[in-house]
Design a protein around this nucleic acid. Sequence first.
DNA 1: CCTACCGATCGGTAGG
DNA 2: CCTACCGATCGGTAGG
Lengths: 201, 201
Amino acid sequence: MVRPRKAAALGGDEGNRRAELLRAAGRLFRQKGYEATTIRDIAAAVGMRSGSPFYHFKSKQELLKTVMTEGLSAALDAQAAAIAAADSPRAAFRAMVRAHLATVLGPGADFIPVLLYDWRCLDTDSRAEVKAIKDRYEALCAGVLVELKRAGGISDDGKLTRLFMFGALNWVSQWYKPEGEASIDDIADAAVAFIAPENSV
Amino acid sequence: MVRPRKAAALGGDEGNRRAELLRAAGRLFRQKGYEATTIRDIAAAVGMRSGSPFYHFKSKQELLKTVMTEGLSAALDAQAAAIAAADSPRAAFRAMVRAHLATVLGPGADFIPVLLYDWRCLDTDSRAEVKAIKDRYEALCAGVLVELKRAGGISDDGKLTRLFMFGALNWVSQWYKPEGEASIDDIADAAVAFIAPENSV
DNA sequence: CCTACCGATCGGTAGG
DNA sequence: CCTACCGATCGGTAGG
């Protein structure tokens, strides 16, 4: 067995190692799923031995929860900034779709499939914690739809419409390939046209 | 430990036991995921001992693959029948949306989340087998969209539109609750309006 | 379809 | 953060 790097046995960059573990865990959970990923896999990915991740996280569960909460928090901040920068309801809607797709498809998006596939692996308390952030994200987006309807850009902004929209957008993570023909911007434009065609109302 | 039923040690209904195992496996895979479900769980659910499922299926993998292929085949048949019974492009589209949601939300829909969550647990050969059926299903639906566009019901029937549509519909399995306010028919009507609003073209 | 079992692996811990 | 290890569990098999 090869040890990818010398252990930084005792020393400075504590948060660094923690962040490395989170990135590796996110990537492995995405690829193989939470259950199929072992602590040994994650440790090996950052050059640690099997017992060492427990120095940074008290359990495998906590690693899973943190992948989700930190990913979602970053997405929430990015979405809020994107919407705030827009100067019309339609611009805000475009910005929201773009920001959502950037989160779902961009680098560091590992937590998105993890959120979907491994939700059921979370214990009850962790679920509530993750759901709280997700609810704030969705409320932010719902507000954009309300404004868009008021401006005449869509005919309905109800719950079902909102869920269909998130379905169409989130599903992209199931089929998007970075090497494919469609860029993220192409997909965003098509999604805007699909959800709110300009001649629809 | 309680044995839910007397073992039918030697005897007639072989296909019956096999079907029972498949139903139990589908339900458990859906609830806990493939990796987290043990052969012992599945055996216990139908009143067998841990080694006995291997009399019907040569491995846990084969159980997973069969849950997917048999579920998909039934969905394909139902979808083909629903579309064939329609007498106009718009009626065919409505029928398709209804049939798809009935498959995704109806009883026996366990295989749908399993397909989504545990796809990556399949070995390469099984993936090809499952994908072949899925491709036929999607081709069938694509034809309905082509006809609907020709009849003026939607402005675009391209690949992205198709994927957005499946996203909106498949995502329903993430949030639908049978006890909720919206019935499957309500959701189907709203989905038709979302994807192909009558005044859209 | 059951009994009895094997080899492998896994999350987590003690002690340094 | 490592070494060394434990108890538990799991997929699968032999033989009936």
